[in-house]
Design a protein around this nucleic acid. Structure first.
Lengths: 229, 229
DNA sequence: TTAAATTATTAGGTTTGCCTAAATTTTAAT
DNA sequence: ATTAAAATTTAGGCAAACCTAATAATTTAA
């Protein structure tokens, strides 16, 4: 029984909306079938099929062969799912002792629970938080998403200092690697030296001096007070 | 990806297991297709079909035309779902301010989330509780279900006193009616008089004298110190 | 600019879980 | 004991969401 004029969506539809949203965030205007196919671990043919369904429901604009974009309504729905996902992640971390590399998988399931009261209560319990355990912003109830101007640590220059505010790669292996190095959201750093050849950084972090690979730096979002130069 | 030799079940399969479990509790040895059909709001033909699938997976013993019973493994799985349902109900009530008539619907969804760590954490957070908000016992991790000897208030005789320990009907309307009368789990009572004609009770409850219909009394589980008679 | 390679779509299948209608078995009543 | 009623199962379909294989459009590169 569904009392809403506002339709409800299947888990699969929700996953598509979320995937399109994330790929749009990555820059492309017009998300390609192949990218969705990869993101969703489904064959391209399946993606085309679902895209058509979403287009029929006015959740996406679709032009054959030229990819897909969220409509305003589609974006609103996607943001709501992202909101739920990130709130659940934070709940798991803060109230149930999950580590930041453990929250994603379970949140993938919890995000599909249909109860406005439930998610609003979780939001309240958490104190209307702004960011999830990976530093990603949590959309508010109205779909407003804070757009912090974050940059990648790999773009910083010697002399720059700042704070880690997020991770790009959220894989368990990367997050556990960060744990091992005691790097977390909020950790402060100063760049001492950057090797021109391979981008290897000498970086002050946690009162220690560390050699950080370019690959690692390219997966850390930072907020900097740029050095005067 | 499923790492368990122990299979995982679809939501629908889980709902069937749970429904069979509940109907077995109601007494019948051999749950009828028609009862499952009613409980699950599905047509009898659909039930027969699913029963066969569960029988193939050794979750139920099935004899055509003579109903279905859980196997030992089926019972174990059913208890696990019941456990999750009741823990979620209590979590919603205790940590998110849900009223006892609001918890069931959401728990119906949450019970299907697949994460042992999640439910164990909730269990721990709640302090390994023994009962859900309706007074029903919560199976432990090993599938042990406390079997309290509860009886119905409607079976009590004048002079009996005791405590409300559970509700049989868990519909919103009944639960809200109880709220209105300030009757809850733990509420004490003494029966003053019982009308032979229609079972209407004069009952001391909440320091007030109340007329309680037989129908209402037949939906309240109690623990009594029977009057010496 | 045209052919080859890549990408996307269509066509036709599969599985799950539901349905209706028809056939069968059990149960109840005379 | 027989028949009518009720319950159950079988048979055949449908929609969702996936798949493979074949076809078509676009892009790239010679």
């Amino acid at each position: 029984m569904c009392f809403y004029t506002d339709l409800m969506f299947t888990q699969s539809e929700e996953n598509y909306l979320k995937a399109i949203f994330h790929l749009e965030q990555e820059g492309e205007a017009g998300v390609a079938t192949s990218n969705l196919s990869e993101q969703l671990q489904a064959k391209a043919a399946s993606v085309t099929e679902m895209i058509k369904k979403l287009a029929d429901k006015n959740l996406v604009d679709y032009q054959k062969y030229y990819g897909v974009r969220l409509t305003e309504n589609g974006r609103k729905q996607a943001l709501n799912i992202v909101r739920k996902h990130r709130l659940w992640e934070l709940f798991l971390a803060e109230h149930l002792g999950f580590k930041w590399d453990e929250v994603h998988e379970v949140a993938e399931q919890l995000e599909h629970i249909k109860s406005e009261k439930l998610i609003d209560s979780i939001d309240k319990l958490l104190g209307y938080p702004k960011n999830d355990p990976h530093g990603d912003p949590i959309p508010d109830k109205n779909g407003n998403l804070e757009k912090k101007n974050k940059s990648l640590l790999s773009k910083c220059k010697p002399g720059d200092s700042g704070v880690i505010i997020g991770v790009k790669d959220t894989s368990s292996s990367f997050l556990q690697y960060l744990d091992k190095q005691h790097i977390a959201i909020g950790t402060k750093f100063t760049i001492q030296h950057k090797e021109p050849f391979d981008g290897l950084l000498d970086i002050d972090i946690n009162t220690k001096q560390l050699k950080m690979s370019h690959k690692m730096a390219a997966n850390l979002y930072v907020e900097t007070n740029e050095s005067s130069s």
